[in-house]
């Protein structure tokens, strides 16, 4: 119970956030106190339940269970009405209480179900069981793990949790040359993944802007290429390889504004000679190895401690 692992604390956090009303079962039945014990058996059997709350005009007056029925049967009291046999001192919970209180009650009283009351008027509005509680937490976890909430995770803590001398998460993307409609597909998928890994938006932005420029180059000038991003605990590296025509004069290509882009690339919004300068601007380290006729390899490094 007092296992101080991260999972437990996350679950506890959620059970504090969740209210009883988020988890309670509203499809419950009640019976009136004037119901005969004879008909109780039939009700319990039909509904496949072991007990039922007793309410008159919506107000909870007690609870009756199969054990009470058995006791009546043994004592030959089956002509009694429910109101005279039921437990009147019922443990209840209000719908606006934190779900954690229900969890505590399960432990404390060893009951598996509690009636849930509306605080203002004391009317019964639902039943909460251990199963309902678990379902509520799972549902909440599902929401918390949704895309928009993924930033709660941190890569560094993930990496720290894993045990090795060196850890790296590798993300690989194939790039199809010449297909301008698909250009950017690798970079935007990389961006999504970096966000999922919990990296800050500023480092994510720097990495994906640089990768996007490089991807556009692969699409514009080569038949295909491969982008490999590696996330370490202290840095991200991006390696881009293509089997394209190569860059004749790398220094010249690094000059802002220098471009030998064909007209079609310019009309598509690129080719203004800013690609390599942008990659250099947004990365911490950049190396270009290019062999004319063979291809180009580009390595970019981004340090996480900005």
């Amino acid at each position: 119970m007092d296992n101080p692992t991260k999972d437990t604390s996350k679950t506890q956090e959620l059970t504090y956030e969740l209210r009883v009303k988020d988890a309670m079962d509203v499809n419950f039945i009640t019976i009136e106190s004037s119901t005969s014990m004879k008909s109780l058996r039939e009700i319990l059997r039909k509904k496949r339940i072991l007990g039922v709350p007793v309410a008159d005009n919506g107000q909870l007056v007690g609870i009756i269970s199969i054990e009470d029925y058995v006791e009546c049967m043994e004592n030959g009291n089956l002509d009694e009405i429910v109101g005279n046999v039921m437990t009147k001192n019922v443990i209840t919970i209000f719908s606006d209480e934190p779900l954690i209180n229900a969890v505590r009650n399960f432990d404390k009283y060893h009951f598996t179900r509690f009636p849930v009351l509306e605080r203002e008027n004391g009317k019964i509005v639902g039943m909460v069981s251990k199963i309902d509680t678990i379902k509520g937490i799972l549902k909440k976890l599902e929401i918390a793990y949704d895309d928009k909430h993924l930033n709660k995770f941190s890569t560094r803590s993930l990496i720290n949790d894993l045990i090795a001398d060196k850890i790296c998460i590798e993300l690989k993307y194939d790039v199809e040359g010449g297909n301008f409609e698909k250009a950017g597909n690798a970079s935007t998928r990389l961006k999504k993944s970096l966000k999922k890994l919990g990296l800050s938006s500023s480092i994510t932005r720097r990495v994906t802007i640089s990768t996007y420029e490089a991807e556009i180059n692969i699409v514009s000038y080569t038949e295909k290429g491969v982008i490999t991003a590696r996330v370490y605990s202290d840095k991200i590296t991006v390696n881009l390889e293509d089997k394209g025509p190569g860059i004749e004069d790398v220094d010249k290509a690094m000059t802002p504004g220098y471009s030998n882009a064909p007209g079609w690339v310019r009309e598509l919004g690129f080719g203004a000679g800013m690609g390599l300068p942008n990659m250099k601007k947004f990365s911490d380290e950049m190396t270009v190895n290019s062999v004319v006729g063979k291809g180009t390899t580009l390595n970019l490094v981004f340090y996480l401690n900005e």
């Binding site: 301008f180 409609e181 250009a183 950017g184 938006s201 932005r205 802007i209 996007y212 420029e213 556009i216 598509l268 919004g269 690129f270 203004a272 800013m274 690609g275 300068p277 942008n278 601007k281």
Partner: peptide, 23 residues
């Protein structure tokens, strides 16, 4: 020109462009 936006554009800005393509 998209490289220009990448180099100088800022988060929280509006991009005005006549470049009608997916990029």
């Amino acid at each position: 020109l998209m490289s220009d936006i990448l180099a100088f554009g800022k988060p929280d800005s509006i991009l005005l462009t006549s470049l009608n393509n997916i990029q």
